[in-house]
């Protein structure tokens, strides 16, 4: 019995040694009281808070949500810190909810503000700070709170590296995204960085980075799914006549799969695929 407990204890210590202690998630803020309502949600109970939207977070590697409310007189600011496990996943979830017309603010790796909210991501955390619906709080106060939370989390403020491979020319403002699963509606395509472009019409460019084996597997599964006559190859370029997504231009380069869709313009597709390849490390 004692031996069993000892093993259990050892297992406990090993598993949680790298975890952040609860009390370190939120900063103390002068003049504000952190409400006793501080909760942690995990994958099993996130739906209790945000219902069906939980599924989106789970698809981006959700680990936990730490939630607290700060009060000062009648003012209440709620802080939600979603721990997503990696910078890519935090950025993915953040960008999935980012509207291009929101006002960009300098915070974390990237952030924006809208009426009563400041959202940003930093390191593996997607942070939502809001007063909307709870009480009227000046926007500057919400931003100040966001800055303190950002500073407290103390993460390197960098964007995912793959985004630097996206060409600038013609790129639509804030159209960049990271799709962790079911890219283009296919279960076998995942981990795609993507952005929309406008040059000779509108199109979408994507870059998938994975192991060379995984990249090969994705490409093979894609080709297998289409009948032979729908797959054409010109040197290193694949032109796929996709049943659902129209014409897709694809190129495989080591750990990268680069593609263009929503255009028939082969010349433009080749130009952009080559531009990405030229930027590869």
């Amino acid at each position: 019995m004692f031996r069993k407990l000892y093993i259990f204890m050892l297992c406990c210590c090993m598993t949680v040694s790298s975890a952040v202690a609860e009390s370190t998630w939120f900063p103390e803020v002068d003049g504000w009281t952190m409400d006793e309502y501080e909760r942690i949600y995990h994958s099993g109970d996130l739906w209790e808070l945000i219902n069906g939207a939980a599924e989106g977070f789970l698809n981006y590697g959700f680990e936990s949500l730490h939630l607290a409310e700060y009060t000062r007189n009648d003012e209440i600011i709620r802080v939600e810190i979603y721990s997503q496990g990696s910078t890519e996943n935090a950025y993915g979830m953040y960008s999935a909810e980012r509207m291009p017309d929101y006002r960009q603010v300098k915070i974390g790796a990237q952030g924006y503000s809208s009426e009563g909210i400041v959202n940003f991501f930093t390191g593996p955390y997607y942070v939502k700070i809001m007063a909307v619906g709870l009480a009227n709080v000046e926007e500057s106060k919400i931003f100040e709170m966001a800055v303190l939370v950002d500073k407290h989390l103390d993460q390197p403020s960098r964007m995912p590296a793959v985004l630097s491979l996206l060409p600038e020319e013609g790129r639509e403002y804030l159209s960049d995204q990271y799709i962790a699963t079911n890219f283009m509606g296919y279960g076998f395509l995942h981990s795609a960085f993507t952005a929309r472009y406008n040059k000779n019409g509108s199109f979408q460019l994507f870059i998938i980075r994975s192991s060379t084996e995984e990249i090969r597997k994705m490409l093979d599964l894609y080709k297998e799914m289409l009948t032979e006559e729908r797959v054409h190859q010109k040197d290193d370029l694949y032109i796929l006549n996709d049943t659902y997504n129209g014409t897709v231009f694809l190129a495989e380069k080591d750990e990268y799969l680069i593609g263009i869709l929503d255009t028939e313009e082969e010349h433009t597709a080749v130009e952009y695929i080559n531009a990405v390849i030229a930027r590869l490390p």
């Binding site: 949680v16 609860e22 995990h42 099993g44």
Partner: peptide, 15 residues
Amino acid sequence: FMYAYGYRDYDHAYA
């Protein structure tokens, strides 16, 4: 119990 055995989050279970 769920925190400890489901998520291995022993600190949370303890809390």
